[in-house]
Design a protein around this nucleic acid. Structure first.
Lengths: 366, 366
DNA sequence: AGCTCCGTTGGAAACGTTTCCAGTAAACCA
DNA sequence: TGGTTTACTGGAAACGTTTCCAACGGAGCT
C-alpha cells in the first residue's frame, strides 16, 4: 500500500541528512549520540528497511549466488543444493536457483539471466563442462565460479567425484561376481557428461577385468518407454546378465522395467546404480551402487566461491575430488548359469544388510 | 576484468544518447533504421548486457520470487520447488530460495531478507501459518504471496491438502484393519503446523471410528534417537499396534527403528505415512500412505502469485485444495492378535501391488 | 587571542536503467 | 508559402543507496 519508506524519509523525520542516517544505521562513520537516537527512533517508527537494490547498484555487489542444476527431482541435486544453501546462508548470501532440465540451451539461457542479475558467484552443474557456452560467458566476466558433479576444466574449479574411477570400480565388482556380458544404461551423453565419463570408465574397467565391451543404451531423462527399450536390449543381447545404470534413478526404473518384463533381479539380471541414494537401502532388493555425498559437494562448492569472494586464502585444494564407496546390495549377484538352484536364490549372494566396501575407495582424500 | 559495459558505453560508441540505446535495445519507442543499426552493432561489439539492477531500481520490479521451504532434503519440498521453478521460469521470473530448517526464527529472518531484496512475490511453507512473524511483514507490504502445504489463513491464499481430512482417512483405514490402539509420530508441532493438523484429524478420526485416543510422540526433525523414543513409547503402551507418522520420512525411519527393536512390520506393528513419496512403493514392505502431489502445489502456488503479478483474472479458486488418496501398502495389516498364524504372515493382507483407493478421495476438486 | 585539530554534519556525485519532455528537422497539406 | 503534423533524438530526472568532501563549531594548545 503505502509507498515503501526510504532512507530519505528517515532523514526527514530524524531531521538530518541521509548521509547521517546511513552512517548510523550501518554503524559506519561517526554520529553524535543525539543524532543516533533520533535516527534509530525514526527508523523504527517508520518501519524502515534498507533496499538491497539501491545498495547493490552503488556497491555493485548483490550478496547473491546463482546456481544451475539439471533438476530438483533427483535427490542427488536436491541434497547438493541443500548443502549449498546452508553454507551460503551462513555467510549471508542468498541463492538464486534455476533448473536446466538437462537441456544445454536452457542451461545457457539460465546462466545469462543469472549474469544479468549480477550474481556475485556461480555454482553450476552443466550438461557438458567442455562445451558449455554459459561457462564461457561466466569466465569472461571473471566471476567466482565452481562446478558441482562435473569434473574440473583447465580454468574452472569443481567439487566432484571421479566418475571414471568409480565406474571402473563397478566393472570390477561385476567381474568379481562372475559377470561377463554387461550393459550400460545411460542418460543421453549430450545432457550429462557425467554419464559419458561413467561409461568410459566402465568400458575401461570391462576391458581390464576381462569382460566383454558393454552394450550401450542411451535414453532421455524422462525415461518414458524404458521398458520397451530394455526389452529390445535384452533380446538383442541374450547373454547380458548385468546392467550398470548411470544413476540410481535410472537403476530403480530399470529394476521396475525388468520386473515388468518378467526378469527377476538379481537372479536373471543384476543391476547397479550410481549416487548412493538413501532409498536404495530400503528397497527390495536393496540397490548396489556407488555411494557419493551430494551434500558435501554443495558445501564444497559454496566454500570455493565464498573463499574467493571474501578474498580469503584460496580453498586448500582448489579442486575437491570427493571420495566414493561401492555399496553392496541385493540387486547384484552372480549370473544365473553360475549356479543350479531352482528357487532362484543365489547361494553366494552378498550379506543381506548393505555394507560399505573399503576396497573400492577413491584414493583422493576427502 | 574490464569494467562492466553499460548503456552509456554503447551510446558513446553508437554516437547517440542513452535514451536511444534503451529504446532500440528494448524495442520501445521509435528510432531511425540507421540508429538502430549503429546501436545494435555497438552493443554486439561491446558485448553489452543490461543490468537487471539498474532496471530494478528504476522500475521497482525485480522479476524475482522469493521462496522459503523447511528443507530440500525431503523430496516433498524438493518436488514442490521444482514445480514452482518450472512455472516461474516459463513466466520469466527467477527464484530466490531459502531453507528455514523448520526453525521459526530463521524463517522470519529469511522472509526479511527476501523482502529487502525486493522480491515481487513470495511462496512460503511456514512453521505455523497462524503465528508467523514473517507473514505479517509480507502482508503489510501487500506483496503477492501464496502458501504451500500450509492451509490458507483469512488473508492468505494457499496451495495445500486438507491435512485434517486426510488424517481422518488414515484413522478410518486403521479401524477397517481392526486396530484399536494407535500412536501418532509427529514432527514437533512448533515446527510444522501440518503435523499438528494431521494429529488433530487423526484424533478426530480415532474417536469417530471407535478407536482409543492415539498416543502422541513428538520428535525433532533430525529424528536422532528415534529408536530409543519409539522403544519407550511401545513399552509404555503395550497394546499399541499401529502408528501413523506425520510424514513418509518419519514413517520410513520408524520402520527402520521398529526393526532394530525386533518388531516386525506389519506383523507386530503397522505403520502409515503421509506424502506419498515414490520411494514408498519400492520398499519392502511397501509403505501405506496418503498420496499428495507436491509438484502441483508448487505449480499452483506459482500460478497464484503470477496471476496477481500480471494483473490477470484472480486465479480461479483463490485457494487450491488439492486432492489426495490413500495408498495401500504392506506396512499396514490387521493387528497380530487378530490371527493365529505362526509364519508372521497375515492372511487378510492387502493386495501386494500397491493400488489407489478411491474411497478416500478428498471431496474438493483438483 | 589566535591557531590547529577533531568530531559531526549534510550536500552531492555515482551506480545503470527507463521515461518524460522538449527540441529538431523533415514531410505533408492547403 | 506558411503552418501543422510526424519521426526521431538526447538531456535530465528519478529510483535508493554509499561515500567523498567541504564546512562548521568547539576544545585544546601556545
Amino acid at each position: 500500500m503505502s509507498r515503501t519508506v526510504t532512507i530519505k524519509d528517515v532523514a526527514l523525520r530524524a531531521n538530518c541528512g541521509v548521509a547521517t542516517v546511513s552512517r548510523v544505521l550501518n554503524d559506519s562513520g561517526s554520529a553524535s549520540p543525539a543524532a543516533r537516537r533520533r535516527v534509530w527512533d525514526a527508523a523504527k517508527e517508520l518501519g524502515f528497511e534498507f533496499s538491497d537494490i539501491g545498495r547493490a547498484l552503488q556497491s555493485s555487489t548483490t550478496r547473491t549466488i546463482g546456481c544451475v542444476v539439471p533438476s530438483l527431482a533427483n535427490p542427488v541435486f536436491a541434497d547438493a543444493v541443500q548443502g549449498l544453501q546452508e553454507k551460503l546462508q551462513q555467510a549471508g548470501y542468498q541463492l538464486l536457483l534455476t533448473c536446466s532440465n538437462y537441456d544445454p540451451d536452457s542451461e545457457t539461457a539460465a546462466i545469462r539471466t543469472l549474469l544479468a542479475k549480477q550474481v556475485d558467484g556461480l555454482v553450476l552443474t552443466v550438461c557438458d563442462a567442455g562445451k558449455s557456452e554459459g561457462l564461457r560467458f561466466a569466465g569472461q566476466r571473471g566471476l567466482p565460479c565452481c562446478l558441482m558433479f562435473n569434473q574440473p576444466t583447465k580454468d574452472l574449479a569443481a567439487c566432484f567425484v571421479n566418475n571414471f574411477e568409480a565406474a571402473r570400480c563397478v566393472a570390477k565388482e561385476f567381474a568379481a561376481a562372475g559377470h561377463r556380458d554387461t550393459g550400460f544404461l545411460a542418460l543421453r551423453f549430450g545432457s550429462s557428461d557425467r554419464s559419458r565419463q561413467r561409461f568410459e570408465g566402465f568400458v575401461s574397467g570391462c576391458r581390464d577385468f576381462g569382460m566383454a565391451p558393454p552394450v550401450l543404451l542411451e535414453i532421455d531423462e524422462d525415461g518414458d518407454n524404458l521398458s520397451a527399450l530394455l526389452a529390445d536390449m535384452l533380446t538383442a543381447h541374450s547373454k547380458l546378465s548385468a546392467i550398470f545404470a548411470s544413476n540410481d534413478f535410472l537403476a530403480i526404473a530399470a529394476i521396475r522395467a525388468a520386473r515388468q518384463l518378467g526378469r527377476k533381479v538379481p537372479a536373471d539380471l543384476s543391476i547397479v546404480g550410481f549416487d548412493g541414494l538413501e532409498i536404495g537401502t530400503m528397497m527390495e532388493p536393496s540397490l548396489a551402487t556407488i555411494v557419493t555425498r551430494p551434500k558435501l559437494m554443495g558445501r564444497g562448492a559454496a566454500e570455493t566461491v565464498l573463499a574467493v569472494l571474501t578474498g580469503n586464502p584460496p580453498p586448500d585444494p582448489q579442486n575437491k575430488s570427493l571420495s566414493f564407496n561401492f555399496r553392496e546390495g541385493g540387486s547384484l549377484a552372480p549370473p544365473r548359469k553360475a549356479e543350479k538352484n531352482d528357487d532362484g536364490k543365489v547361494p553366494a549372494s552378498p550379506s543381506s544388510s548393505p555394507t560399505l566396501r573399503k576396497s573400492c575407495d577413491d584414493k583422493t582424500k576427502d
